[in-house]
């Protein structure tokens, strides 16, 4: 077929291995993906393989799993638990608030919709120092909002246990980019709700409450959970914001790894950092796997 030959041409353009005498049942068309395979192989899979390799050896190059065992003890354990806590709370708060906001956003259209969509996009991608410092400026001891709250509502933010640098402060900052992320992820699910379902419910005699209970919630629940899982993964892996907000008081896994890497490396602990890094990958893998499973359930509908 003429077209098939022509389609082989791009592989030559991209530096693929070109045509060869097909001795075996070898599908030439996969060669077009060679550049991608090579790139990902070297810059993604090879580093991960190296981490795996380093994490199962001690510094005497003996095969061992002790580094993984260590992750369940002491500071490492604290770090993982801290990250889980932060990710979990952030997921709950942002998931629920995000879903509610999403509900209203989905009803907008035109200019308002474009603005809210792009706003969500920008906000979801803020992080690190810009975000942290913005919050310090707003909610810090000298912050504008802190002062405003004091003057107008007579609410001393710092009177209680609130502190921008403790757990709840960081949670607040995380919600700032998690909620827009939720809006972005959850919007498609809401857009797939058909108005015919509401009308059918009405014509069959159902009340609004019954519609919620029997149709809306069951339909939305899987999408909601899968969106929450993505929020969890995102909060768990966040580094820049944690680094900017933390003054060392909150144990978080990404920061721990950062410390192990940043010249605080004690010879014995070099590989421990790799084990930790792998630990984070494994957690992330589980969460994404659960997400994909839920997605399949949703698609079946």
């Amino acid at each position: 077929m003429v077209i098939a030959d022509e389609l082989a041409a791009p592989t030559r353009l991209m530096g693929g291995s070109g045509s060869s005498r097909p001795k075996f049942k070898f599908d030439k068309s996969i060669l077009g993906l060679l550049p991608l395979f090579l790139f990902l192989g070297y810059f993604l899979l090879y580093p991960i393989a190296s981490i795996i390799s380093a994490s199962i050896h001690d510094n005497k190059h003996h095969l061992t799993f002790v580094l993984y065992k260590n992750l369940f003890t002491g500071n490492y354990r604290e770090a993982f638990i801290g990250s889980f806590k932060l990710a979990f709370y952030s997921m709950i708060v942002s998931g629920i608030l995000g879903a509610l906001i999403c509900w209203s956003v989905v009803k907008t259209s035109g200019v308002v919709r474009t603005i809210t969509s792009s706003a969500a996009g920008v906000l979801a991608n803020t992080g690190g120092v810009p975000l942290a410092f913005m919050f310090i400026a707003a909610f810090g001891q000298e912050g504008l909002i802190t002062k405003l709250l004091l003057k107008v509502f007579h609410w001393d933010l710092y009177g209680g246990s609130f502190d921008l640098y403790n757990f709840w402060g960081i949670l607040l900052v995380y919600c700032f980019f998690q909620i827009p992320l939720m809006v972005i992820i959850f919007t498609p699910a809401l857009e797939n709700l058909r108005v015919e379902w509401i009308e059918a419910n009405e014509s069959l005699g159902g009340s609004k409450l019954q519609y919620f209970r029997h149709v809306l919630i069951p339909v939305l629940l899987p999408s909601f959970f899968s969106a929450c899982l993505l929020l969890f993964a995102s909060a768990f892996s966040a580094f820049a914001t944690a680094a900017a907000m933390s003054n060392g008081s909150i144990p978080l896994a990404p920061l721990f790894i950062g410390n192990l890497v940043n010249g605080n490396v004690i010879p014995d602990q070099a590989n421990q950092g790799d084990a930790m890094a792998m630990g984070m990958i494994i957690v992330s893998l589980f969460v994404i796997a659960a997400y994909l499973l839920l997605l399949r359930v949703t698609r079946k509908r």
Binding site: L44, Y46, P47, I48, S50, I51, F236, S237, F239, P254, I257, G258, V261, G273, D274, A277, M278, M280, I281, S284
Partner: peptide, 8 residues
């Protein structure tokens, strides 16, 4: 996670 990629 990007952190892990950095280590790698």
């Amino acid at each position: 996670p990007v952190v892990s990629l950095a280590i790698g």
